[in-house]
Design a protein around this nucleic acid. Structure first.
Lengths: 204, 204
DNA sequence: TGCCCTATATATCAACCCGATATAGGATTG
DNA sequence: CAATCCTATATCGGGTTGATATATAGGGCA
């Protein structure tokens, strides 16, 4: 599943420009998948060439001219096939968690700032979902979009609660470790389980 | 923060080979960051050239020869600086959620299979964290690694519970939408808020 | 009126990452 | 004893990221 497929999917909701698609990916989709212009525009160009979407240039009334993209029947079929054959992976790439993993190497002020910033981002995304849910209120049958938003709400809510509940433990650990600062003999946590024969420099 | 920084960080836990690092990234780190050989080995080569790590070839007793990498003092300093200057981003790229978003376009059997597979993956990663926590039991001061694992446990546990609690709603919604299958007049959900002027093909 | 900032909109490029693949010796297993 | 798996290193093409360039309209403001 690449950005091309993602564009096809987004176009099942109606015609859109590349800019519209980016906006969509940044709103209720931001906790699922990200795509920037650098992948969206090439994707749309290739899809047009493959006749999976059609493009119509609309001269800009009040703005620059826009290229409206429309899903063709072939495009809809291709998307359905891709939906059924794609491996449902779920990957996280979190600099935030990497920093947290090395919390014992950080000054407490930096630690606090990082945590606060991540909490703020969580609140922001939760607010986006809240707004979406209000707009959907009253509509009876929950759709896949509702499921995905609910998923994000549950997951990000759990993240927020966990951080609030446990950040103070980190501060304590930080004090305890920073006064013997660059110690060597950290008694094997995970990398060293299978690497117990890696003797030759530090450790063990 | 790229894979080079990640390798520096992992090497603060002790010397390791490229293979060891991959193993580490796949274990308790798998819910934070991913890195394959295609990024690890070039990263280690560049770090060696920059004198941030040193390499020692160990002739393989019972296996192929291994290149043990060791963090130099310069490398440790560089890593600390990077930790303080890195923006704490947190990105998710989930084909799983994309598929779920378009649940109304999928046959129920496929939907079930996708959900079951994701649940199985969640259970697997939760089990990894459980094993880590048992191994850590008794050690007093919680470290950053403990915090990150707890975070993963909280978040993935919430995901699992949400899926279990809400998957049946999707099945209902699926029935309700598939019998009028490719309907056009889906009353604007998100891409169409700002795109309300995208009239010209279908929709609206 | 002039000026700046923001939003809309498209497009490109280098640097980087991912996934697959090749290679190869040792251990395990049927 | 061939098949397969595990350890271990390395490379390559294709795709993505993030920054940047370009251009126009509208709002704020002094």
């Amino acid at each position: 599943m690449d950005v091309k497929d993602l564009c096809l999917g987004a176009l099942t909701h109606g015609d859109a420009t590349g800019y519209d698609l980016k906006k969509f990916f940044e709103s209720t989709f931001s906790h699922c998948f990200l795509a920037g212009y650098g992948s969206i525009y090439p994707a749309l160009a290739e899809l047009t060439e493959e006749k999976l979407v059609s493009a119509k240039t609309v001269p800009g009334q009040g703005g620059p001219s826009r290229k409206l993209y429309h899903l063709t029947e072939a495009g809809r079929k291709a998307f359905l096939e891709r939906l059924e054959s794609t491996e449902p992976q779920h990957k996280v790439k979190s600099e935030f968690l990497v920093i947290m993993h090395f919390a014992h190497l950080l000054p407490p002020a930096r630690l606090d700032a990082v945590l606060d910033q991540h909490l703020a981002e969580l609140e922001h995304k939760l607010a986006l979902i809240g707004a979406y849910e209000s707009a959907q209120a009253g509509k009876p049958a929950p759709t896949g979009a509702d499921f995905v938003c609910g998923f994000g709400k549950a997951v990000m809510g759990a993240a927020r609660n966990y951080i609030r509940a446990h950040r103070h433990e980190l501060a304590k650990g930080g004090e305890k470790t920073t006064n013997r600062s660059t110690r060597q003999a950290r008694p094997r946590s995970k990398a060293s389980q299978a690497a117990s024969r890696n003797r030759g420099y530090t450790n063990a």
